[in-house]
């Protein structure tokens, strides 16, 4: 474990806490893409298949449980919670995310570290996580004004993988066995997708103005 990876995990956790805060404080999920949340739940469920078979550390197990539980809780809130579900922008959140699932799965069958059940699903979860934010970014552009908590949520979500890139660079120079090309390349693509969001987030912070993405 290195400081970059720990900071990355904490930033990821903060993004989830900010989203939970937004939903519980405002009793609303406006501006949040249910499709992206469903994709994240799928990412965690397919990546942590070794949750009960392999043990790495208490920290690793606890964080996996938190990520799985929180992503499922958010999907439940947006689909079932009588008050929250009413504020879901159903007619704006129309990205066909099944294509993202299919493309990631096909790629995982072609490009993997080892042709084994858990490895294919691990690669699938890595590819899917890289593009899972697309429905959310499209929704932000469509819904114009972005409330503060939603903006912070997306910012921390993008920042966590950028910290993981620093972690991979660090491990590349310190770990002789280290070779995580699948995660590295996907992580670069994932972070690049946030580039324009990061720019408009910075502008809104510098001008102390509302976050606004061009349509």
């Amino acid at each position: 474990m290195n400081i970059f990876r720990f900071a990355g995990d904490m930033t990821h956790l903060i993004s989830i806490l900010v989203l939970l805060l937004k939903i519980y404080a405002t009793k609303s999920c406006s501006g949040i893409s249910l499709k992206t949340q469903e994709l994240y739940a799928l990412v965690f469920l397919t990546r942590y298949l070794d949750l009960f078979t392999g043990f790495i550390s208490i920290y690793n197990t606890v964080m996996k449980l938190i990520f799985i539980a929180s992503s499922l809780a958010i999907v439940w809130c947006m689909r079932v919670h009588p008050i929250v579900r009413r504020s879901y922008d159903k007619d704006l959140d129309t990205f066909r995310h099944y294509f993202l699932v299919a493309a990631s799965f096909i790629l995982a069958l072609l490009l993997y570290e080892k042709f084994a059940f858990k490895e294919i699903f691990w690669a699938f979860s890595i590819y899917l996580e890289a593009i899972a934010i697309l429905p959310q970014l499209v929704l932000l552009q469509r819904s114009g004004n972005v409330d503060n908590l939603t903006g912070h949520y997306v910012f921390f979500l993008g920042a966590y993988r950028a910290l993981y890139i620093l972690n991979w660079i660090y491990r590349y120079f310190t770990d002789i066995h280290f070779s995580r090309w699948i995660a590295c390349v996907s992580g670069l693509v994932q972070t690049a997708l946030y580039a324009d969001f990061f720019y408009y987030y910075y502008i809104s912070w510098r001008n102390n103005a509302k976050l606004k993405l061009p349509a």
């Binding site: 990876r5 995990d9 990821h12 990546r47 070794d50 392999g54 570290e113």
Partner: peptide, 10 residues
């Protein structure tokens, strides 16, 4: 064989 490279990252 080298220790199975487990995915130790989240």
């Amino acid at each position: 064989s080298p220790k199975q490279e487990r995915h130790d990252e989240l």
